[in-house]
Amino acid sequence: MITPAPHPFVVFAGNVAPLTSILLTLSPLPTLLSVPRADSVGFDDDDDDDKVSLLPSSTSAPKNPTSKVTIASLPLLPYSSMAVNGSLWLMYGLLLQAKPLIFPNAVGACLAISYIFLFALKSSPREGGRHFDMSRKMAAPPPSLWTRIDLPSTFRTHLTVGTSILILGFTCLKGGLRNQLAALATLVCGVMFISPLAKIGSIVKNKSCPPGAIPLPFTVATAVNCFLWSVYGIKGVKDIAVTAPNVFGLFCAFTQAIVVFLYSPKGKGKGSIAIELP
Score class of each variant (00 low, 15 high):
50 D>F: 05
109 A>G: 13
53 S>W: 08
211 P>V: 15
66 T>N: 14
242 V>A: 05
74 L>N: 03
178 R>F: 09
197 L>S: 13
129 G>V: 03
210 P>F: 05
86 G>V: 15
75 P>D: 10
17 A>K: 01
128 G>P: 00
21 S>K: 03
36 P>Q: 11
276 E>N: 10
195 S>V: 10
195 S>G: 06
145 L>D: 02
44 D>G: 11
94 L>H: 08
66 T>W: 09
103 F>S: 11
242 V>L: 12
267 G>C: 11
148 R>T: 01
40 S>L: 06
146 W>A: 03
34 S>I: 14
166 L>G: 04
216 L>P: 02
271 G>A: 04
43 F>E: 13
17 A>P: 03
101 L>K: 03
39 D>G: 02
227 F>R: 02
98 A>W: 14
93 G>F: 11
84 V>R: 00
237 V>Y: 08
278 P>V: 13
118 L>I: 15
90 L>Y: 14
232 Y>D: 03
79 Y>C: 05
62 P>L: 08
16 V>A: 07
245 P>F: 03
97 Q>W: 08
92 Y>F: 12
207 K>V: 13
208 S>T: 12
158 H>I: 02
72 A>Y: 04
139 A>R: 12
275 I>G: 00
168 L>Y: 08
101 L>D: 05
213 A>R: 00
11 V>A: 04
84 V>T: 15
29 L>H: 04
192 M>G: 03
210 P>I: 09
86 G>F: 07
259 V>L: 06
55 L>G: 06
93 G>Q: 10
209 C>Q: 02
68 K>V: 09
94 L>T: 09
253 A>M: 07
213 A>F: 05
180 Q>P: 10
81 S>W: 15
64 N>H: 15
